[in-house]
Nucleic acid binder design. Sequence first.
RNA 1: GCCCUUGUAGCUCAGUGGAUAGAGCAAUGCUCUCCUAAAGCAUGUUAGCGGAGGUUCGACUCCUCUCAAGGGCACCA
Length: 572
Amino acid sequence: MISIKDEIAKILDDKITGLSYEEILDIIEIPADPKMGDYAFPCFRLAKQFKKAPQMIAEEIKGDIESADIFEKTENVNAYINMFISKEYFIKNVLSEVAKKQEKYGSSDIGAGKKVIVEYSSPNIAKPFHIGHIRSTVIGNSIYKIQEFLGYDTVRINHLGDYGTQFGKMIVAYRKWGNEEDVVKEPIKTLLSYYVKFHDEAEKNPELEDEARKTFVKLENGEPEETELWKWFREESLKEFTRVYEMLGIEFDSYAGESFYSDKMDRVVKELEDRNLLKDSNGAKIVDLEEYGLTPALIKKSDGSTLYITRDIAAAIYRKEHYDFYKNIYVVASQQNLHFQQWFKVVELMGYEWAKDCVHIPFGLVSLEDGTMSTRSGRVVFLEDVLKRAVLKTREVILERGVNTDIADDISKKVGIGAVIFQELSNNRIKDYTFSWEKVLNFEGETGPYVQYTHARAASILRNSEKEFDTALKEIDDTDFSYLTGEASYMLAKLIYGFPDVVKESGERYEPSIITRYIVDVAQMFNRFYHDEHILVDDEKERKAKLLLVFAAMETIRNGLGLLGIEAPDRM
RNA sequence: GCCCUUGUAGCUCAGUGGAUAGAGCAAUGCUCUCCUAAAGCAUGUUAGCGGAGGUUCGACUCCUCUCAAGGGCACCA
């Protein structure tokens, strides 16, 4: 696709002395109101340099460029040079590009040959997968998809919380009160009940804590019995997590969790010692970070055991050596900001220049209407329940609308789950929010179902005129795009044109909501076009041109939804 | 006490220096003999962007101070 902005920059660069091509490119903007043009070049910045009033400069430059054939017209308004692009030229440019790229439209190869690791989801074994976990899971998945679309080689890592003293507790509790059948039947719930019981009992009988610690040491030392139990807990938990991942359509390349690094931590401690970074403090070993304005990083407890900061450092080193990443991304709650700042700094002090390539992508907190979530007190909303209810609600709506029952199941899954994901990815990830059933089950306005519905409408039109659309695609060079210069169709084409930049921006900022917002805009504009203009008109040339626009809108929405991890059903 | 984040319409949120600050929800009215009404259209002197200073030709956007809410601050992860 021809970059219109580049074309304009070239034209301006020929006429303006004293500004580089890049500077010009940087100044060109898109006016807030399309009535003011497709692109604008504000001249205020040039006033000092040229020692002239901005209005005059604008007038002169305008005179120099107005004859260029990509412009329909140019205007000078309050020192802005407003440029109107020739509509047919513009539309042809965009629609040809979408027709050529199709499911690849919006993608890029800027990441070619570079490896990006995305760590996300990372639930704790034997603990419920609740609504709080949706954030890392869904945001991380979308970030992975966006990076991949930008051409990066990606590795998806689920850094399971499968290690630590808690497993000593679990093993002790299981041996005391557990039973195999219950665990197999309902692993998470059962294991959690053991865990809760352990804490209750430990209050009366503190020796249990000791026993748990000793048991964890046995596990660390690879004692067969403990290892066997631990493996079993892990597998049973994973089965349950996998069920949710399947519903969400999420996969991982690696489930190397905390336990995977258990034998890789001595090396970290040794390197820290060799570099004289470790200090004794109240019997514990720390890295003092005071001169960087951070509290100390606790590497080893006074009892000699390690902490998760050490595991994260070991994991990062392993990943660098094993994958040689270009970026190492952690999609983890903002509560852990300090933790990441600390260990990124420690890795830097260890002399690893790649410390700068590690990025923490924080996100805000989810709370419930009656307060923060608490597993122990039962104040928790299970993610699986949310997904199931969304699917059920969708099914009701579908049946009301008289959709064929044999496709109802498939569609209600795609739409229901899509609604939940879409909602999650609608706002800037840093915002906190309160979970509400009413909100997650609302399907009107700026929601997933709205966008999917728009896509289904477009798909339906193309289905109804399949053969004609095929020939329109083949004969795209002969298309008369003047039929698409109406307000809604031209604005729609302009929006579609912006998709590749939107993908890049959301990739650079690790912000999926940019795409969510954008596809809502595309859907809104498509719906306006759909109402304003009849698409399957009698005139063949007009019909073909319109079909190409419908196709471009549909592809853009479909590709955008794909980047969010949401399916785009062809009918609903 | 220190550090981080957030504070924009009744509600939920967009808007990472540029032209009169935008959506959705909620409210009222209208549009299905016409490509799917999970849609579209119209109606708000709806907020001057928590507050005060400053930088800039220009600030919701950058800086300083301040208020409020959330999170974090060593042997949990």
